[in-house]
Design a protein around this nucleic acid. Structure first.
Lengths: 355, 355
DNA sequence: GGCCCAGTTCGAATCGATTCGACCCGAGCG
DNA sequence: CGCTCGGGTCGAATCGATTCGAACTGGGCC
């Protein structure tokens, strides 16, 4: 009798059948109040803390778990604040539904055929890929094979998979128009990684053809939409302050006559690195060079400066994913969603020098 | 036949019994290679992606899930990098064991008797509280009632619960001795929250008696151990850059004769806010005021400055928690662990002015 | 007094796998 | 030639709950 008590133990202690005892806890079905109380008392005296979730799950076929594939995102921890905030919003959104978030490591090594054991065999009712995902991704394939409904955030449209994204292309275009409106003509850009190979440095035409992660592609295309042909494209291996800093060194060291007058970074972390790098080169922001980012984080360490950026509704993204999950579990097939973004003017952009 | 196939379907398709089919997948027990292959082929042709985890879990009594109670930590997302990095280390540590991390929201409101539904009824084999936890915490109590083994990180010692912590008291003491060695005599300190009421401002003796979160207490005591009696204690509502900034305004605005010559912050984020605030007041760091932190994060936005701080092994902490979990699941009762820390000298501390 | 109905309670099947002991069969040995 | 041994397979019980239909109970009504 060292085992934890089961519903059967409680039932016999209360002098009722197992089915009645179950009713007392689940509340599904009619039960006399007196009986219910007797069962609850028996449970209390046995230290029974409620029905074992495993039994319930097997019966219902539902685990109540949403697997979130975090890829490298979590590994880069607070350095990838967008992912973490999304995770936060998602937890908030699905927690009231009684669902929990299970962290699932993504691909172990780039290009490796292996996936984390959890991908193969953890119980989950739905899975979310928060960092995009291409059709040939082994993690995505394994989940599809298991028949687990998927929601992909910030990925390209995939057939038969629900996607949630933002209008980042339009947002960057708006931002670019803001800059051209200020008279900027030599605009450089600092991008997110092109793909799993995560290179760093100036990208030429060949390299531009090798973009596999669509997020970098879309944000580049936004510039084109606004008629901006960047004078330089600097690719970074990750969205980190230090890579933005390095980009600034590479892009802004030349003479004023040819130096870009504005830099558009594809993330706020990169942008803040560019600001710091520019200052270090003795350039004033925004008098000598304007800098803009993407995401809309608050960056207290830039204070009193405020970054000009494209604000995306990260928390709402989590909520939207939550709703998609709810629909999937109800058997519906929710529509893809694309959330709007908004340019927020800060103090890091201004008129082009000499304009 | 619209349902997903079960092991029974595979077995009958392969012309073997269910038990044999189970053997083919689990590898536990003898099975002829030919038979195994036949079962696997049948599975492939039926699109059977492996045994349903729910069935397996019920039978084994194990869910393979570690519940991690994140409290406000995740909510503050990248602003609480220590928690996120710990989470990262923990995922790394237990993923090879085939265990997954389930995020469990902590107390919904301070003082509320309610706990998140997941706390009451999610399947988990072990739970981890990563932000400490006192005996009267409803989340902790609920988990104890369910008979779920607990690991508490950075909490006070609790009877019958495994704790993992660091030598933060000694670390702060070492740091304080470094400062007194440099001739500092007027040392102020900026602390983590005292408790769930999260006040902000200078703390007097009365307030100092109201510390419920032991982490702030221990790090204060470290100063005493080194014989340092702080000239001012500034309490913050959260470990954020902006609160460190505010603390600097409050502590460093006075005349040089009475102004503290050094500030010890209980976290790196607070410390970096102090540095920024000091600079804004026109003070040079470390010539006019020395600043030190705690944690050992890398703060690229302070570059080229490097914070003097007490480095704690965050990732290793995750690994240690992982080992404790492993031991608990094996039925052992692992010992409490206290990890060492190390003072790392940076560029933000120097000789006391005039010394 | 008999019948019917609403309100409760109960038995048994079910979810999908694992596992233990029984059983079968062929090979090796006496 | 018969017996034993052991590898391989199978049946059935089991994990802990939910759920559906059947059965039982007592009260009200004719």
């Amino acid at each position: 009798m060292s085992q934890r008590p089961t519903l059967a133990d409680v039932a016999s202690a209360a002098g009722v059948s197992v089915s009645t005892a179950s009713l007392a806890f689940s509340g599904a079905g009619p039960i006399a109040e007196a009986t219910r109380q007797r069962v609850l008392d028996a449970a209390a005296s046995l230290d029974y803390a409620g029905p074992n979730p495993l039994g319930r799950q097997l019966r219902s076929g539902r685990s109540g778990i949403v697997g979130v594939v975090v890829g490298d995102a979590l590994r880069r921890s607070f350095r990838e604040p967008v992912s973490v905030q999304l995770l936060d919003g998602l937890v908030d959104a699905i927690s009231p539904l009684g669902l929990g978030v299970l962290l699932v490591p993504g691909s172990l090594e780039p290009g490796a055929p292996l996936v984390d054991p959890l991908v193969e065999s953890a119980a989950m009712d739905v899975a979310v890929l928060i960092w995009g995902g291409t059709l040939d991704d082994p993690t995505l394939q394994a989940l599809q094979r298991r028949g687990i409904p998927l929601v992909v955030v910030e990925g390209q449209d995939l057939p038969g998979i629900v996607t949630v994204g933002i209008e980042d292309r339009d947002g960057v275009a708006d931002l670019a128009r803001h800059l051209t409106g200020l008279g900027h003509e030599r605009i450089a850009t600092v991008t997110l990684p092109f793909g799993p190979d995560r290179r760093s440095g100036l990208a030429d035409a060949t390299r531009l053809g090798q973009i596999t992660w669509s997020i970098a592609r879309r944000r580049l295309d936004g510039l084109q939409d606004a008629g901006v042909e960047p004078v330089a494209i600097y690719e970074t291996p990750a969205s980190l302050v230090e890579h933005g800093h390095a980009a600034a060194q590479a892009l802004l060291s030349g003479p004023a006559a040819t130096r870009p007058t504005a830099v558009v970074a594809q993330s706020d972390l990169l942008a803040s690195g560019v600001v710091l790098g520019a200052r270090e080169l003795g350039l004033r922001v925004p008098e000598d060079v304007s800098v803009a980012g993407f995401d809309g984080l608050d960056l207290p360490w830039l204070a009193p400066d405020v970054l000009t950026t494209v604000v995306q509704p990260i928390t709402e993204k989590g909520a939207v994913v939550g709703r998609a999950i709810e629909a999937l579990l109800a058997g519906d097939t929710p529509a893809d969603e694309v959330l709007g973004v908004e340019v927020r003017l800060g103090t890091t952009t201004g008129p082009a020098p000499g304009a």
